[in-house]
Simulated scan of single mutants.
Amino acid sequence: MNTAKMQVEIWSDIACPFCYIGKRNFESGIEKFADAANINVTWKSFQLDPTLPEKTTVDHEQYLVKYKGLPADRVNQMLQQVAQSAKAAGLDFHFEKIATVNSFNAHRLIQLAKTKGLGDAAEERLFKAYFTEGKNIADRITLTELGKEIGLTENEVTDALTSETYAAKANEDIDEARQLGIRGVPFFVLDRKYAVSGAQPAEVFTQTLEKAFSEWRAKNPETAFEVTEGPSCTADGNCG
Score class of each variant (00 low, 15 high):
V75I: 14
S103M: 05
N38H: 14
G69N: 09
F95R: 01
D59A: 10
A36Q: 15
Y20R: 10
V41F: 11
S103H: 04
F18V: 00
N105V: 02
N102Y: 03
V58R: 12
E96G: 06
D49R: 12
E27N: 13
T51Y: 12
I21W: 12
P71L: 02
V58K: 14
S103N: 05
D49M: 11
P50T: 06
N76Q: 13
V65I: 15
G29N: 05
K68L: 14
W43V: 01
N40R: 11
M78K: 01
H107I: 02
E27S: 12
L79K: 01
K97P: 02
Q77T: 09
E61H: 10
G69T: 08
V58Q: 15
L52T: 05
D92K: 07
P17I: 07
E27R: 10
F46E: 03
L112T: 07
R74E: 10
E27K: 12
C16F: 13
S85F: 07
W43F: 12
Q47R: 07
I21N: 05
Q77K: 13
L64K: 06
L91W: 02
T51D: 11
D49G: 08
I98P: 02
E31M: 04
K66C: 02
A89Y: 01
L48H: 10
A88H: 08
A34Y: 03
E31A: 14
Q62F: 02
F46R: 04
L109W: 05
K68N: 12
A37C: 04
E96Q: 11
G69C: 07
A34F: 04
D73W: 00
Q62P: 00
